[in-house]
Every structure is written in C-alpha cells, then in structure tokens.
C-alpha cells in the first residue's frame, strides 16, 4: 500500500515542434518525456522503504543499472491495458509499430509489446505492477556494492511484501510468475538503452543532460 500511495502521477508528453521531420519530432518528444520521467523516478526511489538506508554510492549504482527497467515496467503496464498495437509512453504519446520503426525503435517496439502481452496474459494488478517496478530497481545487479547487507534487507523487504500480498489473495504461484518476467524486462531495457544511445551517437539526436548521463552509465 505504501508503493501504491507513492506511485507518481503519470506525466504528459510535451510535443516537440522545433523540426518538420516527424520521426525526429517523435524522438525529441520521447527523450524529453524520458528525461522528466527519470527525475520523477529518482524522487520515487527515495520513498521506497529501505532505499534510503542504502549508502549514497549504492543508491547511485542501483539507479544507474535499473532505471530503464523501472521505467519500462510503467510503459508495458500502460500498453497492456489496451489490446491494440501501441506503446503508451504517456496518455498523449502513443506510438504504433510504424511510428516506432520510422523513429529507429523497431526492436524496442517488438520487445516492449512482448512484455506488455505477458503482463496482460497474467492480468497483472496495480499492486503487482508497483512492486515489480521496485523489485526491478532493487534487483538490478549493480556491482561492486558498498554495503551488500543493506541491499539484501532492501530486496528481502520487497520480496516479503510481494509474498504477503499474493498470500492474502490465496495466490501461491503469482509471486514466482512475476519474478520470472524479470529476464525479459532486463533484455528489453538493454535493447532500449542501446537504441537510444545509437540514435544519439549516430543520428545525432540531442539528449537531455540527465538522460544522457544515465544512458552513458549503462553504455
């Protein structure tokens, strides 16, 4: 319930109008949204029980490793609610396959749709979505760690919350099923980071400072 209460309100995209090129416009709009999502994500992380008990270095490491996974849980969650073919980055930024392909995000589109289909097939609840997002951050396999014991406590607390929630619903298999979706999430996040870096470096699409810093931390 704490995670549900601290879940940030969805952001809206600010449509870029600095260029006539529609695929570039899409990317600039998306990158601006992601940069603001990252700011919100960092504030959100501080409110997860146990996160502030980690050392500053470990907090940085987890966010540097796990930020894209945490953001993509949100994108896949919003996209699975619709049986359609779109990726819902924001209520006013829905990209279909053709728009993603034109923007150089064909791989990302396929993988996030796959993830969204998996969440949809599971009929994932809001409680599960917010917990999975926190678990993705806690489980991001940052290395080396300053204080592995604090991280263990942080992970155990989230795992226990997930188990308690599922037991209260009489669902003994769902916690495991949710955790088994983490490899696909990691693979999808890796694709997305590579795609955004490629667009920045090869197509010279400008990226905001915070987003660039976080992309380069994963490069």
């Amino acid at each position: 319930s704490h995670l549900l209460l601290t879940e940030p309100a969805p952001l809206a995209a600010n449509q870029d109008d600095s260029t006539e090129d529609s695929s570039l416009q899409t990317l600039l709009t998306l990158f601006d949204l992601l940069n603001r999502e990252l700011l919100v994500l960092i504030g959100w992380a501080k409110q997860i029980p146990g996160f502030s008990e980690l050392s500053l270095l470990d907090q940085m490491s987890l966010l540097q490793s796990g930020w894209m996974e945490a953001l993509l849980v949100g994108v896949a969650w919003r996209s699975q609610a619709r049986a359609g073919e779109e990726l819902v980055f924001a209520g006013n930024l829905r990209l279909d396959a053709a728009q993603c392909r034109a923007a150089g995000l064909a791989d990302v589109y396929e993988e996030v749709r796959h993830l969204a289909a998996r969440y949809r097939a599971m009929n994932m609840s809001p409680e599960e979505a917010v917990t999975l997002k926190a678990v993705a951050l806690a489980n991001s396999d940052a290395d080396p760690l300053d204080c592995p014991d604090s991280l263990q406590r942080f992970q155990d607390g989230l795992h226990e919350a997930l188990q308690d929630y599922e037991s209260s619903r009489g669902e003994q298999h769902r916690a495991g099923r949710l955790l088994m979706s983490l490899p696909l999430l990691r693979q999808t996040a890796g694709r997305a980071v590579q795609a955004f870096l490629r667009l920045h470096r090869q197509r010279r699409v400008p990226v905001h400072k915070l987003l660039l810093e976080m992309l380069e931390a994963k490069a």
Partner: peptide, 15 residues
Amino acid sequence: KEKHKILHQLLQNST
C-alpha cells in the same frame, strides 16, 4: 563520480 554528478546531486537533495 564527476561523471555522474546530476544523479549524485539529485540523490543528495532532501526529499
């Protein structure tokens, strides 16, 4: 940690 200075600053700011 100079390379990650924005994240560092954001985490240090009180909530």
